[in-house]
């Protein structure tokens, strides 16, 4: 069961202590834009989780090889980016063969795969020196952190929409940014926690 707790620990760290969206800013634009479409939260987050896990695992496997492990940051970024592109292309091609999705589905698949949140996961794992279990935990946590961010931003969006007292100058995106800033401030209370020290 130790592996499970290690994974849970890494996931919890990613969700609360260093919420990737609010405290890291990863995938912030996707979260804010997608928060306008509540019906797609779950599928989109599932796609993000899938791509995060797949990329994190493959990158971890590659990093096991000494020749790759000893490369510098630039080469690692290029390799991890290449892995992400390959995972996306393989998934898109496979789906195209099996379920023949429409253009909209493919474009959503694109945005869920090729975004800063998914690309950041293997880079974070490498910087933190995570093993396989923690890498998967971080990847799963990134999906949960994303859906948490979507829910909170969407609830805020709804509140801001209903709020007629907001000064006209702040209505729309300015209020949305300020609301997200407050969410980020609130989650800062968790940062630097003693939970995993």
């Amino acid at each position: 069961m130790t592996w499970f707790f290690d994974m849970l620990q890494a996931a919890l760290y990613t969700i609360f202590i260093q919420n990737l969206v609010f405290n890291g800013g990863y995938g912030a634009s996707e979260a804010i834009r997608m928060s306008q479409k509540p019906k797609r939260f779950l599928p989109f987050s599932l796609m993000i989780t899938y791509f995060s896990v797949a990329t994190a695992v493959i990158c971890r496997v590659l990093d096991e090889r000494r020749a790759i492990r000893e490369l510098d940051d630039a080469a690692h970024a290029a390799i991890f980016g290449g892995v992400l592109i390959a995972v996306f292309l393989a998934t898109a091609a496979l789906l195209k063969l099996i379920i023949k999705p429409n253009k909209k589905f493919i474009s959503t698949l694109g945005i869920s795969a090729l975004n800063t949140l998914v690309f950041a996961v293997p880079l974070i794992n490498r910087n933190a020196g995570y093993g396989y279990i923690e890498s998967v935990g971080t990847a799963l946590g990134s999906g949960v952190a994303f859906i948490l961010a979507l829910l909170l931003i969407s609830a805020g969006l709804r509140r801001l929409e209903e709020n007629k007292d907001i000064p006209p100058l702040f209505r729309g995106t300015p209020a949305m940014f300020l609301y997200t800033a407050m969410l980020s401030l609130a989650f800062t209370g968790f940062s630097g926690s003693s939970l995993f020290s």
Binding site: I17, A155, M182, L183, G189, F190, S193
Partner: peptide, 19 residues
């Protein structure tokens, strides 16, 4: 218990306001 500061009730109120 797990937060960054010794007194985090204001952060808790903000998180609660959001959730």
């Amino acid at each position: 218990r797990f937060g960054r500061f010794e007194e985090s009730v204001c952060f808790a109120v903000l998180i609660s306001n959001a959730i």
